[in-house]
Design a protein around this nucleic acid. Structure first.
Length: 468
DNA sequence: TGAAATGTTGGGGCG
DNA sequence: ACGCCCCAACATTTC
């Protein structure tokens, strides 16, 4: 019996779970037979340029940890799996579930195809702490407010991580190299991103550094983008190089960190909430969660959008954030809120444009989290920021980058500007600008909009949708 | 996970 | 000593 089990070939289909440890589907696959590890790059699922760059390296790391046994394919997932199962007597297909509408649609088709053709397909939860259907209100409808969602969800302790299994590999089927997926861009704009370590091992190192150095002051420190107090685990979580369960339990072990721990765990809770929203509202990535926003008078000033994308709005904290995004593929969360508020409220540009730009530029671009973040800041989401919450980029800079370290790092053209004028360069006297080598309008822009005037405009625009 | 406008209080300067 | 004004500091309301 054991022998016949061992001789079975089963597929483990990697998607956004590019790790060996705490991988429930992989564990079960390994118990059932010889494992053919498969990754399919399916062009139906469009990912941004920064994500492609990350995925390229992540697949290389995964292939290394599989001793070169990763089978890479390009094409429609169902067709590829059908092709493999013609060449192999595949008895089972294992994978970990994804919760995006298109994925669910496709996985359902694949599952029913194979189950009716004698190949069992079996899926697991490898990327969420709680299944969306486990956290519902008493009337069995999904939560629309974060706090009760999280309180209810956290009644159940998340599953403990499992060890990486011993794998017996099936004979290799695809000899396609990661390079052949052409995930790297022709123009190497990713130089600034190469300080990221990528892959499962790097993910655990990042987690360890955070637990040792960042989390002790997480609650306050996470607001200061120049400080290394945030986990920066988002890209690893997105690609599944580490599981939320591994993060949750490793963090929870540090009881000494008190409310800093609770605050951090709550952030994992927001990730769960975002996934639940996308699961139950499949158009969450493109339609206003609150329908009363459908007639909102968005503007469409292409020059404003371009200035925002390029970090040339004239507001240093906004521009520093957008430059961090462009050069590193990441942006500190405090700054994401500031630049988001500025785009949506001060420039009155539709949140879609912000979401699309982030999608292309972020190494942690994630459909659920990105959509939830933009709907939140625009005020049209679930449990969203109220319409009147408009971040003042000058005050936010003064409060959360008090030494100007973050601004100077990402806006080197302002590096010589004294702190007094660093948040408001347009107020600096000529002689100060001159001695700082700044020519406003030339090597650093004047503000593209007046904050106070644009704030008032936003309030009157939002008045058209506010609840009376 | 906001900021501005408006209201209140109390100490100090001053006639 | 007293009343008045000013205004900073803080609190509350409003957007």
């Amino acid at each position: 019996m054991v022998l016949s089990l061992k001789n079975k070939t089963v597929i483990f289909w990697f998607r956004q779970d590019l790790r060996l440890s705490d991988n429930p589907g992989l564990v079960e696959a390994s118990k059932s037979g010889r494992v053919l590890p498969v990754f399919i790059y399916d062009p139906r699922f469009q990912i941004g340029a920064a994500s492609k760059w990350w995925l390229h390296h992540s697949l290389n790391r995964l292939n290394e940890s599989l001793n070169g046994n990763l089978n890479i394919y390009y094409g429609d997932s169902l067709q590829v799996l059908k092709k493999i199962s013609k060449e192999y007597p595949v008895s089972e297909i294992y994978w970990n579930r994804l919760y995006e509408p298109l994925r669910i649609e496709q996985d359902t088709i694949i599952k029913s195809h194979f189950n009716s053709h004698g190949t069992k397909s079996i899926s697991f939860n490898g990327s969420l702490l709680w299944e969306p259907w486990e956290t519902l209100k008493k009337d069995q409808t999904p939560y629309k407010v974060f706090t009760p969602f999280y309180k209810n969800a956290a009644l159940k302790s998340p599953r403990f991580p499992v060890e990486a299994p011993d794998l017996n590999f099936a004979q290799k089927n695809s000899f396609m190299a990661v390079d052949e997926l052409k995930l790297l861009p022709e123009i190497p704009w990713y130089k600034g991103m190469e300080s990221w370590g990528i892959g499962e091992k790097a993910a655990h190192e990042v987690l360890k550094v955070f637990l040792d150095e960042g989390m002790a002051d997480y609650k306050q420190g996470r607001n200061y983008p120049a400080q290394k107090k945030v986990s920066r685990l988002s890209p690893y979580l997105h690609f599944g190089e580490i599981s939320p369960n591994q993060v949750w339990h490793a963090a929870s072990f540090r009881k000494d960190l008190g409310e800093n721990l609770d605050t951090f765990l709550t952030e994992l809770g927001w990730r769960e909430f975002a996934h639940s929203l996308l699961y139950y509202f499949p158009k969450f990535d493109r339609e206003n969660f609150q329908e009363k926003f459908n007639d909102f008078p968005w503007g469409d000033n292409a020059q404003y959008l371009s200035a925002w994308q390029n970090g040339k709005t004239g507001y240093p904290i906004v521009d520093a954030g957008m430059r961090e995004l462009w050069s590193t593929g990441y942006m500190h969360n405090r700054v994401r809120m500031i630049v988001g508020s500025f785009l949506v409220k001060n420039l009155l540009i539709h949140w879609h444009h912000g979401k699309d730009w982030f999608w292309d530029c972020l190494v942690d671009a994630d459909l659920a989290n990105n959509s939830a973040g933009w709907q939140w800041i625009a005020g049209c989401g679930a449990d969203a920021a109220p319409y009147f919450r408009i971040f003042n980029p000058i005050l936010q800079g003064e409060k959360f980058d008090p030494d100007g370290e973050y601004i100077r790092k990402f806006l080197p053209e302002l590096s010589k500007l004294p702190l007094k004028y660093l948040f408001t360069p347009w107020e600096a006297p000529d002689y100060i600008l001159k001695s700082a080598d700044i020519k406003l309008g030339q090597n650093y822009p004047l503000p593209i909009v007046d904050f106070n005037a644009s704030r008032k405009q936003a309030l009157s625009a939002y008045a058209s949708v506010k609840i009376i």
